[in-house]
Design a protein around this nucleic acid. Sequence first.
DNA 1: CGCGCGCGTCAGGGTTGCGTCAAGGTCGGA
DNA 2: TCCGACCTTGACGCAACCCTGACGCGCGCG
Lengths: 225, 225
Amino acid sequence: MTRVLVVDDDPAIVRALVINLRARQYEVDSAEDGAGALRAAAARHPDVVVLDLGLPDTDGVDVIRRLRAWSRVPILVLSARHASGEKVQALDAGADDYVTKPFGMDELLARLRAAVRRAEPADGGDVVVETEAFTVDLAAKKVHRDGRDVRLTPTEWHLLEALVRAGGRLVGQRQLLREVWGPSYGTETNYLRVYMAQLRRKLEADPSRPRHLITEPGMGYRFEK
Amino acid sequence: MTRVLVVDDDPAIVRALVINLRARQYEVDSAEDGAGALRAAAARHPDVVVLDLGLPDTDGVDVIRRLRAWSRVPILVLSARHASGEKVQALDAGADDYVTKPFGMDELLARLRAAVRRAEPADGGDVVVETEAFTVDLAAKKVHRDGRDVRLTPTEWHLLEALVRAGGRLVGQRQLLREVWGPSYGTETNYLRVYMAQLRRKLEADPSRPRHLITEPGMGYRFEK
DNA sequence: CGCGCGCGTCAGGGTTGCGTCAAGGTCGGA
DNA sequence: TCCGACCTTGACGCAACCCTGACGCGCGCG
């Protein structure tokens, strides 16, 4: 879930933002001054910060600088000032976007989505799943075992990926076949047997007693850490 | 040097932007419609795109989508419309920022700097990447090997750059083709074979046994340190 | 006890994909 | 106008992959 930090000294605005964001499944923290903002950012590691420039204790641009000193979290600035000098200062200090009050909630949310989307592949880069026998890197499409790379064929990789992405849940054979071979392959369960065997031979310590690529007889297969 | 692509059908705006950007040491290309924008983006690989939504031939949002189909270049949208619906559409299609006309040049430039700054470390990380066989300098666009410069053709460089920027991740052949040759070249995989061979001949110690420019059969290619 | 079912294993044959080479085409500079 | 560098395109051999069928095994059930 995406975590947002809202910083504003006007309780009405904070409330409006919190309600709207929570309704859209964001996790929201809030702060009402610069010190609180920096504390919250350090403690909670938000995925994006919505920052009002007119805070009671600190200059907003200074908050941006201090955040940027150690974090690359996207910062979306709110401000009542329309003057372009303010905007330039904030943006050059490291802000990602600048919205003037009064703002439309739809627009703000869209800009927020844009900021989060941009940041995603940057720091959430590698999705790596580890087991005691091998390591799967879903982003790089790489499998590691005993310090060496394991070579997988395209079909083997697709199958492994489908299982790993299910995150430990059971995947039915029909679903597996459709994901890997395409929508018209619902019954060729022998494909699964052949390729599961190859995967186990390449990945399991003891292929005849799989510990991670598990068969659920009559139902399907499951990946287990 | 940072390369900017300006897309607008109003010559006055294009001129103003080009003058201001060139004065600040940007390298500027321009296009006046959607088709030209896509062509220019494919040919010149700009570091940021400034895009007017009201183009004569195409819906601006559609241009954004088509760009996003193969590129992550930052897109800064210009528009005369203040309506929030337009903004939301453009941002959700993949735009990075949205500025309404008339705009202040200072503000636009600041937003442009923000967009470029964000993108820089996002896909590169290191500007210089070293292997035991050769060294790639992404900023200087140079390749060193055994203490001397290696001469690469433009296409060879694009290909190498796309692989190195992926940072060890596997790059699918379709994606590679689109990044290097443009969005309409999704299937000419023989290009890849030819140019990968040339790169290996120039860079690998033993071109028949590549250690850094690796083929993943059926899936794509990967750069490995 | 015999049978059927589902799963794992193995090996062979058709097909695809990759590396290689060479020739034709295009563009810009001398 | 000629020349060279670069890009495109096609052909060919080879290795790897995908599919397929056959067989063996364990289990549950009649």
